[in-house]
C-alpha cells in the first residue's frame, strides 16, 4: 500500500539511503542466496550491510543443519555406549560387503570433487557420483540381507538393533543427498553448468562429504570401538 512512499520517521527526518530493491527468495530459498547481493555490490543492503557473517545464507543454513544431524547421531552414540555396557550385548559379525559400500561412498565423494573442478564435464562426473551413491544404498540393503540370512534380525540383540537402525537412519540421509544431487543434475541438464549449478553443487558437496564422513564414523562406532 505504501508503494514508493518514503519512510515517515519520527522527528520528521527523511533519511535517503541508496536506492535498494530486494530480490525474491520466495520460490526457492536455495536458488538465490543473498551472497548475490553481497558480491554484486548492490541489492538488498548491498556493500554497506557490514553487519553479517561472510557466509551466504544457504551455506550458513546448511552448516547449522549439519550441526543438528551431528547432534542426532551424538544422541544415538550415547545411547549406543550406554546400551553396550548392558549384560546381553553380543558383538555382530561384520558383513564383508560393507567394505565395498564404504569404497563406493568415498569414491563418490572424489568424483563429485573432480566434477566441481571441471565445469565442462560436470554432468558426467556428478552422474557418476550419484550412481555410486545409489550403489552404496543398494549395498547396504545387501548387507541387511546377508545378516538376515544368518538369522540376525532387528530384535536379535542390541548390537544388531543398533546396526539396522543406524544404517537405516544414515541411509535415509544418503537418500536425501541422492535426491539433492539429482536435482542439481536436472538443473545442469537444463541450464548447462552456470554459476547457479556450481553454487548448488557446492552445497550438495558439503552435505555429501558430511554423509560420507558420518558413515566412516558409524563404522568405527559399530565395529571398532
Amino acid at each position: 500500500m505504501s508503494e514508493g512512499r518514503g519512510m515517515r520517521r519520527p522527528f520528521g527526518i527523511e533519511t535517503q539511503p541508496p536506492e535498494v530493491s530486494w530480490d525474491a527468495r520466495v520460490w526457492s530459498d536455495l536458488g538465490t542466496p543473498p551472497s548475490d547481493d553481497h558480491h554484486r555490490g548492490g541489492g538488498d543492503g548491498g556493500p554497506e550491510r557490514r553487519d553479517r557473517l561472510p557466509i551466504p545464507n544457504a551455506q550458513l543454513g546448511l552448516w547449522i543443519f549439519l550441526g543438528t544431524v551431528t547432534m542426532l547421531f551424538a544422541g544415538f552414540t550415547s545411547a549406543y555406549l550406554v546400551r553396550q555396557a548392558g549384560p546381553d550385548w553380543q558383538p555382530l559379525p561384520r558383513p564383508p560387503i560393507l567394505w565395498v559400500n564404504t569404497s563406493a561412498l568415498l569414491a563418490s565423494s572424489v568424483l563429485l570433487e573432480i566434477g566441481r573442478r571441471r565445469p565442462l564435464a560436470l554432468r558426467r562426473w556428478v552422474l557418476g557420483a550419484t550412481l555410486l551413491g545409489v550403489l552404496f544404498l543398494f549395498g547396504q540393503l545387501l548387507a541387511w540381507r546377508a545378516l538376515r540370512a544368518q538369522g540376525i534380525y532387528l530384535p536379535t540383540n542390541p548390537h544388531s538393533s543398533f546396526f539396522y537402525i543406524l544404517t537405516g537412519v544414515h541411509g535415509a540421509h544418503v537418500v536425501g543427498g541422492v535426491i539433492a544431487l539429482l536435482s542439481v543434475l536436472a538443473l545442469a541438464w537444463r541450464d548447462g553448468s552456470g554459476e547457479r549449478v556450481l553454487r548448488r553443487l557446492a552445497l550438495c558437496a558439503v552435505y555429501w562429504h558430511f554423509v560420507g564422513g558420518l558413515w566412516l564414523y558409524l563404522l568405527v562406532v559399530l565395529f571398532v570401538a
Binding site: P17, P34, G45, E48, R49, R50, D51, R52, L53, I55, P56, N57, L60, G61, I64, F65, T68
Partner: peptide, 17 residues
C-alpha cells in the same frame, strides 16, 4: 530455528550490530 539463527546472523540491516 535454523531460519532464526541464519536470519539473525545474516539479515541485519545496516548499522544493526
Amino acid at each position: 530455528g535454523l531460519n532464526f539463527v541464519t536470519t539473525i546472523l545474516n539479515e541485519r540491516t545496516r548499522g544493526m550490530s
